[in-house]
Design a protein around this nucleic acid. Structure first.
Lengths: 115, 115
DNA sequence: TGACATATATCGAGCATCTATATATAATGC
DNA sequence: GCATTATATATAGATGCTCGATATATGTCA
């Protein structure tokens, strides 16, 4: 994950959900896409991604089906459900609140209307 | 931490270092200050903070000494060392990179000069 | 045919946080 | 005078997320 050592946990699922909001994707594709778009800040490991995918599918946020691309090998495509879409919204909101709180602390050494 | 369940790990240490950049503080004070400034996004638990403080002191990022405030009880104040200041800078940089990468993914479903 | 990229999967280790628990003193309420 | 609450620090155990290692199988290129 290039975060010195590991990724700041909790984010991987949000990022995956976000990718699937755009279009259906298979695991390997998500890893590559995240790495490319984040300039390798997110080098998500296969051992991290697949359990997340399985977990999200188990809770109904995703569905999956195998497809054969051209003469290519079989790939497992994941699709975002309505439930997954709501989960994404919720997690995006959480991220916003969290990031703003961190920034508020890191920005100023001053009082923020502090009581 | 109010992050639904747990905090997005890795941040607690940065926030602690940042508070100590401003001035010396004791543990309980940090918990209260973080809660106040973050509007309770960070309700850091004592069981989380003290091990972090001990760890940072062990690696030389902090020093500590007991002080008696007025007629009050004894408090253990922590002080940021030069090493701690560098650690903070580094971790702040990491946060910036990370937050920007997350935002880039969450903002757009579009290509970012994607190859 | 041997190496490498693609593609999915699982298990164990590591780390950070939480919960629970323990201790001790000061302030407050009854 | 005594119980409760707030202040203040500390540790142990449970949980959760990610990583590293490992396994398997196919397609491509030399």
């Amino acid at each position: 994950m290039a975060m010195d050592k590991s990724l700041w946990p909790g984010s991987a699922a949000v990022l995956v959900l976000k990718l699937l909001e755009e279009r259906d994707m298979y695991g390997y594709e998500m890893i590559e896409t995240l790495a490319r778009r984040s300039d390798h800040t997110f080098d998500l490991k296969a051992g991290t991604l697949y359990p997340i995918l399985h977990g999200l599918e188990r809770e109904g946020a995703l569905t999956s089906c195998e497809r054969r691309a051209d003469t290519d090998r079989t790939r497992k495509y994941y699709h975002l459900t309505e439930k997954g879409r709501k989960l994404l919204e919720e997690k995006q909101r959480e991220w916003t609140v969290y990031a703003e709180a961190v920034n508020r602390i890191l920005r100023g050494g001053v009082s923020y209307g502090a009581v």
